[in-house]
């Protein structure tokens, strides 16, 4: 599904990614953990080309993301992303946030897009908020809407960039609950997070990154109980 080969990314002199190679299978849930500055967010943002890799190759659904010939907008329509700071459109209602891209990118009619949006709002428990503006929602509600907005494009892959890091602790649960339902629908997920409970419960595989490299990867049990590398152990001992 996603194949990453020898991915490098530098910002000026700073090397953020130093040779990432991995393969993510269809319907797999991969959780990326690691200390801040380890490059995990940059890695995620390379997957939909919000950051342009310095070198290396990324192939999603047999389409090369890194090939300049690729229609990147078409690819992004298949790869949803959820951001740490939600990034809802403040000048649009919750409903408009969700219906905009399906209409403009997928060419759905307004009625079709709204039907889809109401279905998603129902699912995230915010149907009654369809007509309000994002700034009247709590952080947890905003993030759920952001997830619905990405899902409205019916993507095959969802990328989550620390989706609960900007939330008050009591709101983390409601967002994770929505995320936990997604694998059932066969969506491939790559999640950068510090929520180890989520990684354990939902993750098929955990990648531990440090200093721009994948240090270790394996099933959640393997990584959490039986880490091989010192750096992984040190990191886990600080956060568990």
């Amino acid at each position: 599904m996603i194949e990453v080969t020898d991915l490098y990314k530098s910002f000026g002199k700073l090397q953020v990614l130093r040779g990432i190679t991995t393969r993510i299978e269809e319907k797999e849930v991969v959780v990326v953990i690691g200390p801040s500055g380890s490059g995990k967010s940059t890695f995620l943002r390379c997957l939909n080309l919000l950051e342009v890799p310095t070198s290396g190759e990324i192939v999603i659904n047999n389409v090369s993301v890194t090939d300049p010939q690729t229609d990147i907008n078409k690819l992004r329509a298949e790869v949803g992303m959820v951001f740490q700071h939600f990034n809802l459109f403040p000048h649009k209602t919750v409903l408009e946030n969700i219906t905009l891209a399906p209409q403009k990118v997928r060419g759905l009619s307004r009625a079709e897009a709204e039907e889809r949006a109401y279905g998603l709002l129902e699912k995230i428990g915010l149907a009654e908020k369809a007509q309000v503006y994002p700034d009247s929602l709590s952080g947890g509600q905003q993030q759920r809407v952001a997830i619905a907005r990405a899902l409205a494009m019916q993507p095959r892959v969802m990328l989550f960039d620390e989706p609960t890091s900007a939330l008050d602790p009591e709101m983390v649960g409601e967002v994770l609950a929505v995320m936990k339902d997604l694998p059932k629908e066969g969506i491939t997920m790559v999640v950068v997070t510090h929520e180890m409970g989520f990684a354990r419960e939902v993750g098929d595989r955990v990648l531990f990154m440090d200093e721009g490299q994948i240090i270790e990867e394996g099933s959640p049990e393997n990584i959490f109980q039986n880490a091989q590398h010192d750096r992984t152990k040190t990191f886990l001992s600080k956060i568990l």
Partner: peptide, 26 residues
């Protein structure tokens, strides 16, 4: 904020669509 552009582009909207529907109205 840059996040607005990123959110719009991550949904597959073109640069022109992002300008027209997201950035300019704000």
């Amino acid at each position: 904020a840059r996040g607005q552009t990123e959110a719009a582009r991550s949904l597959g909207m073109t640069q022109a669509q992002t300008m027209r529907y997201i950035i300019l109205p704000q």
